[in-house]
Design a protein around this nucleic acid. Structure first.
Length: 376
RNA sequence: GGAGGAGUUCCAGAGCGGUCAAAUGGGACAGACUGUAAAUCUGCUGCCUUACGGCUUCGAUGGUUCGAAUCCAUCCUCCUCCA
């Protein structure tokens, strides 16, 4: 269940109570698509990186090692050694990202596996069954994430189908949770708002899906081609239609600036591959802006990545060393930067929560918004 | 001493008369990355110019030719094999 603690403008401070622990919101969820944060970071590391929630992917884990395998091994928590809350994405994003490898019908989506090309079918029921086997804390409804810009007619048809899929997802989840041998019979379900950049579609979709008394509501289909301003506008459009007593999750977003802007507009939860992927590519986030650790200017720089950071990386290693590790393709460089960026994102959300607790989010926002996004 | 082979832009290495400022790797330098097909991808790497374009390059010097990294001569430097 979700408890709204306080608000400041549209921004919200709350907590999501789950069978696997309570999540303080606003929260960032750390993306471990295949059951691990890419960059050789384990659940044990996450404990030291202020992580509250791990996010894993239905599609990827269904392909490998197979959701039945995970089920046999006791579910994702036991498998990955992460005993906190886990959110599983439904595979809906792969309908977008694997566009060249899939075919959509009312029943569901047929994918060509990105691993070996074999055909796999996933509809709402299949997605719920897989997520039930994975035994995540929160399952996401199976949706279609449409690329922006999208034709109005297509966006409308897709959005309406996603709503029908949500009803089927909910029915299947209820059935699975009632079975005697389900690992997590209290698995929660979040519905997903779609509608591309069209206000009327977004609002109508939200009205439809809020009729189901779900555990949370996500805004999907953003940061997939439209401008940041357009994304913020859609959030502002949808937010008034979202239940106040349920968590709001903006899927796949985003940059530190995106997060500051979205919290301001009433979003409670985020996830994004950016901290981990960018870290693997040598791009680190700091409280004074972002750095590319490949840059020659770090060759003799003995300071930590961020002088204001107390993550394990910044407590021990210099920019010069990390620069060298990247130039030498040593994977330790990636690991150290992934840990730093994950810690940075989780710290950012922690500071946001503190600011909200003290009714000074507006000041915090003004303080951070300019410097946090710049390149240094 | 004798017989061969080679010297190309930061490195390795193609090119063997014009379409060559010179393939391809690597390195260097920079950029991108938003519910992860990503330890990935892109750009750039002689000088001048915003560009068009111009200029100087392929061990050195001289020559043949309308034209040379490519052909010839000499020189320098390296490598292999035989004494």
């Amino acid at each position: 269940m979700f408890r709204l603690i306080k608000t400041e403008g549209a921004a919200r401070r709350g907590e999501l109570i789950t069978p696997h622990g309570t999540v303080q919101t606003p929260a960032f969820m750390n993306v471990a698509t295949c059951g691990a944060i890419k960059g050789a970071v384990s659940a044990l590391d996450l404990k030291n990186l202020k992580c509250q929630v791990q996010l894993c992917n239905t599609y990827h884990l269904h392909l490998r090692p197979g959701d039945e395998t995970v089920r046999t091994l006791g579910g994702l928590q036991k498998f990955t050694k992460w005993d906190g809350p886990i959110l599983t994405d439904s595979g809906g994003f792969q309908v977008f990202s694997l566009a060249k490898l899939r075919n959509i019908t009312e029943k569901g989506v047929t994918f060509a596996s990105h691993i070996d090309g074999h055909r796999i079918f996933m509809g709402p029921e299949e997605s719920m069954q897989i997520q039930s086997n994975l035994a995540s804390t929160i399952a996401m409804a199976f949706d279609e994430c449409v690329k922006n810009p999208a034709e109005y007619d297509y966006a409308k048809a897709s959005c309406e189908r996603t709503v029908r899929w949500l009803y089927r997802s909910k029915a299947e989840m209820d059935r699975l949770n009632s079975l005697p041998d389900t690992i997590n019979p209290k698995q929660m379900l979040f519905g997903i708002n779609q509608g591309s950049t069209y206000e009327d579609l977004r609002v109508e979709c939200m009205k439809q899906i809020r009729k189901l008394d779900l555990d949370g509501y996500a805004i999907g289909g953003l940061a997939v081609g439209e401008s940041a301003e357009s994304m913020y506008h859609i959030i502002e459009t949808v937010e008034p239609e979202m239940p106040k007593d349920k968590p709001r999750y903006l899927m796949g977003v985003g940059t530190p600036v995106n997060i500051l802007e979205s919290v301001k507009r009433g979003v409670d939860m985020f996830d994004c591959v950016m901290p981990s992927r960018n870290a693997r590519h040598g791009h680190v986030f700091t409280w004074s802006g972002c750095r590319n650790m490949f840059n020659a200017k770090y060759k003799l720089d003995e300071l930590p990545l961020d002088t204001e950071c107390d993550c394990p990386t910044c407590q021990n290693f210099s920019r010069a060393y990390i620069h060298h590790l990247f130039k030498s393709s040593e994977m330790l460089g990636m690991r150290l930067c992934v840990m730093h960026n994950i810690y940075f994102y989780n710290s950012l959300l922690e500071k946001i929560r503190q600011a909200l607790d003290e009714n000074r989010y507006s000041d915090f926002y003004n303080e951070q918004i300019l410097k946090i996004g710049q390149r240094i």
